[in-house]
């Protein structure tokens, strides 16, 4: 159904980029001004993930602060998307995935048997790389999530609120019945953000949300991310370092499935402590 986006190939190639020196996976992550457990809304502890026999995440630990934007950066194949999808258990959809370690949200280990991944995804929204509105009307797109939950309140108001938060209301308020596919690429992505917000999640995960968009649309989405962190905790995967610098409060750099370094974004970009991070932010590989 879904094919893993991770292949074993970058493993060797990335190593040659870094240099002759083989990379030591057992080094602890470098942390600057770490987020304490009580300030974290999501707490990832010693998390490992395998696609079949291939280990895509190695002992990742990361606290994600509430109402802030956390960026995951790294070369393609470094596991940043996998980590993002681990937070709302999207990886469960791939049958060959195995995990261990914990991801705690509101004191609940999301990977405990008592937890329903469906409920997790209702609380942790997601925005994908390519805008993927349903081939339904704008209204029905936004109302999709609430309807799944048999939303009791005023659906019209909720849709309006979500579209307003996604800064799309003014553009679509006259064509709510028009197809979501009739919008421009940037509008579609904002529709997807509105759709994610309509389920009233606490956290919104964004997987390279602007990689398929033109610069103007990218600009609007970045501005939007800034605005919505008032209401939501945002985790964003990006391969665009300028973007990470512009939108995020904290940044985590990953390489070959290992969290190398994390800290406040300006620290990571101006004063990286790990050699690998420095090489990456200077654009020497990836």
């Amino acid at each position: 159904m879904t094919t893993p986006t991770v292949s074993t190939e970058p493993n060797t190639r990335a190593n040659t980029h870094v240099g002759a020196k083989p990379f030591d996976l057992s080094q602890p992550s470098v942390r600057t001004a770490p987020v304490s457990d009580e300030h974290a809304v999501v707490s990832i502890k010693d998390f490992n993930l395998w696609y079949g026999n291939f280990q895509a995440l190695h002992h990742v630990s990361l606290n994600i602060p509430k109402n802030q934007v956390t960026a995951l950066i790294g070369a393609s194949g470094c596991g940043k998307s996998t980590l993002l999808r681990a937070i709302n258990r999207m990886n469960d959809l791939i049958p060959i995935v195995k995990t261990d370690g914990t991801i705690t949200y509101e004191g609940v280990d999301l990977y405990d048997r008592a937890v329903d991944p469906v409920e997790v995804r209702r609380r942790v929204g997601m925005v994908f790389q390519k805008p993927n509105p349903f081939p339904k009307s704008v209204f029905d797109n936004v109302a999709f999530g609430p309807r799944l939950n048999a939303y009791k309140g005023d659906l019209n108001a909720l849709v309006e609120k979500s579209l307003k938060r996604a800064a799309l209301w003014e553009e679509v308020k006259d064509k709510l019945k028009g197809s979501g596919l009739g919008l421009s690429g940037g509008q579609q992505q904002r529709l997807c953000i509105a759709r994610a917000m309509a389920t009233e999640p606490d956290i919104i995960l964004m997987d390279e949300p602007t990689s398929a968009l033109d610069p103007m649309s990218t600009d609007r989405i970045e501005g939007l991310i800034h605005e919505i962190k008032e209401h939501y905790t945002v985790v964003i995967v990006t391969h665009n370092m300028q973007q990470a610098g512009r939108v995020s409060d904290r940044t985590a750099f990953m390489h070959l499935g290992v969290l190398i370094e994390e800290g406040p974004t300006d620290q990571i970009f101006t004063n990286p402590k790990h050699e690998m991070t420095e090489r990456y932010v200077e654009g020497r590989f990836g």
Binding site: M90, L93, R122, N132, G145, R195
Partner: peptide
């Protein structure tokens, strides 16, 4: 039916049957 639509549906907290009946079959 593109798998991105299924992912969008699952990402919004749809169960398997909800995804099939609301997204896959209509398309």
């Amino acid at each position: 039916v593109p798998s991105t639509l299924r992912q969008a549906s699952y990402g919004l907290g749809a169960t398997k049957w909800q995804t099939v009946s609301e997204v896959v079959l209509p398309n």
